[in-house]
Simulated assay, not measured.
Amino acid sequence: MVRRMQTTVKPLLGPRAAGAYAVLLLLVAAGAALLAAGVLFTGVTRDAADVTVYLSNSVRLDLDDRLDLPEGAALLGNLLPVQLHVPDLPLDVRLLAQSGDALLLLSIAVGALALAQVLRTVRAGRPFARRNATWLAVVAGAVVVGGCIPPVLRNVGAQAALGHLEVRGDPPFVTWSSFTWTPLLLGIVVLGIAEAFRRGAAMADDVDGLV
């Protein structure tokens, strides 16, 4: 008789690796939360803010002339980003200017914390624990919020800061906010994974009920 060969499937993420990654994510969450608090603290204690603005077309063309570039060479792009330091701003404008970075860091903290909870159950051998679907839904929300809202807040904060500058003539700076579908698509993917975990948990409960 020929004995059947037994094959062992190596897990993609073993208990030790899951535990190590969970600890790493917890450290990331704590660091991001501390950085967010630091950003807001800076907005409260400083009387100025640094905002991202873009050089206007007239300034860009003027730079072409001043740089004395060789014939045929020119600066490309209609929007050239620069950091603008705006002093003597009221508290609400300073906090608004910092809110985009703070929200991004808080989203990273929440997403990392939620994903760490999932990895802890993987380490414990319970990948389809009931709460994992909820934790993954939190991750999806953090991805969407952190990817879509901070650019809008940065743009609004930059507009508010520029409103306090007394610039004569044509303004040398403009504000601009871009929108990308990537965070929404990633959020949908994570939600799909969350639904798979939810159904896996329901199937695990059914199997336990039959035993």
Rank of each mutant, 00 (worst) to 15 (best):
P172T: 09
F173M: 03
N57T: 15
V156K: 05
S99Q: 04
L165H: 10
Q6L: 11
L84V: 05
L91P: 14
A137N: 14
L12G: 11
L25A: 09
R3P: 03
H164N: 11
G209A: 15
R16Y: 07
V23A: 14
Q159L: 11
L95F: 06
L191W: 08
L115I: 04
L25F: 09
V93D: 03
G14D: 15
T175E: 00
V207W: 07
V118L: 08
D62Q: 13
N78E: 13
E166K: 12
K10T: 15
V23R: 11
L25V: 05
A116G: 13
R123M: 06
A129N: 05
G192N: 04
V144F: 08
V139Q: 00
V138Q: 00
D208I: 07
M203R: 12
A129G: 10
A158D: 01
V189R: 01
V190H: 00
D47R: 13
S99I: 06
R123D: 01
L40H: 05
V211C: 06
R130E: 10
L95N: 11
L13F: 14
M1I: 13
Y21K: 10
D101E: 13
G125R: 14
L103G: 07
L113A: 12
R199G: 03
L34S: 07
L84I: 06
A140E: 00
T42P: 00
